[in-house]
């Protein structure tokens, strides 16, 4: 019975949606069933897969590029105090610039296309990841670093055997949050800067003939993929060598 409660919640929400559409007699906002049909229509036209792949492709590239650069960069800043002093204030100023504010520059440098979107997602993930890695290095217990050096580890060994495993739990949480932001940004970027993907689908469906059923279908797809990405990242957090964490100690 307890297992069913969550489904009940979703069912109630969908039912309330249906009721609201029927009762207000709106023509613009589609009913749940119309939204499902719209997803079917997208699948038939072959756009469903194409748009999903386009969005995921951009997120994957931008996000992994950011991981690849931000984590070593953040660790370097975390272990090298002078470097941090020099660079951190600049990161703090650049970080709150909405990645979307970079759109004009992205288009200027990379043109209208995938590369611009990838660049924006890269920016959106790079700063939070850098800060997370840096902060995580600060949070390492001195005892663990001391123990590592006591057993005769060289600096590269210390990095691999103490620093990396010690920051992993915080890093994985930061990675999940950054992926959430990246997913938010890809939709916005696609609404403005490119001609494919789920964000484009939403804008296009509205502009080309007020197809609000397609708009809502797009929203559902964005939500569903977001949930899946979040669940995948949460799975990472339950791995044995990640599940500890200084907070829970």
């Amino acid at each position: 019975m307890r297992r069913l409660v969550p489904f009940l919640g979703v069912a109630l929400a969908v039912f309330a949606w249906h009721l609201a559409v029927v009762m207000t007699g709106t023509r613009l906002v589609p009913s749940p069933w119309a939204a499902v049909r719209a997803i079917g229509e997208l699948a038939q036209k072959g756009l469903l897969l194409k748009y999903i792949v386009a969005s995921l492709f951009r997120v994957t590239w931008g996000y992994f590029l950011a991981l690849l650069l931000a984590i070593p960069f953040g660790i370097a800043l975390g272990t090298w105090r002078r470097g941090e002093l020099a660079v951190n204030p600049l990161i703090q100023v650049l970080r709150p610039i909405s990645p979307l504010a970079w759109i004009p520059i992205a288009i200027l440098w990379f043109g209208v296309g995938d590369l611009s979107a990838v660049f924006l997602i890269f920016l959106a993930s790079f700063f939070p990841l850098t800060v997370t890695a840096m902060q995580a290095v600060h949070n390492i217990e001195t005892i663990h670093l001391s123990a590592g050096t006591n057993f005769g580890l060289s600096r590269p060994q210390l990095l691999v055997r103490v620093i990396l495993p010690a920051i992993l739990p915080q890093l994985v949480v930061g990675m999940r949050l950054a992926l959430g932001v990246a997913w938010l940004v890809v939709v916005a970027a696609e609404m403005i800067a490119v001609n494919s993907g789920l964000g484009f689908l939403i804008v296009d469906a509205r502009n080309a003939g007020d197809r609000y059923d397609l708009v809502v279908a797009g929203m559902i797809l964005i939500g569903a993929i977001g949930v899946v990405l979040d669940l995948l990242m949460r799975r990472l957090e339950t791995l044995d060598f990640v599940r500890w964490g200084y907070a829970s100690e």
Binding site: S146, A147, T149, N150, F151, G152, P165, A166
Partner: peptide, 30 residues
């Protein structure tokens, strides 16, 4: 400086939480 011929034992927080018992014991045996 620190030297593996002389090992420092901290309060229990010194074990590595990301390693299991065997991996902790073998930490210095590389």
């Amino acid at each position: 400086g620190p030297d593996p011929r002389r090992i420092f034992v901290f309060q229990e927080r010194g074990v590595f939480p990301w390693l299991d018992v065997e991996q902790n014991i073998s930490f210095g045996l590389f």
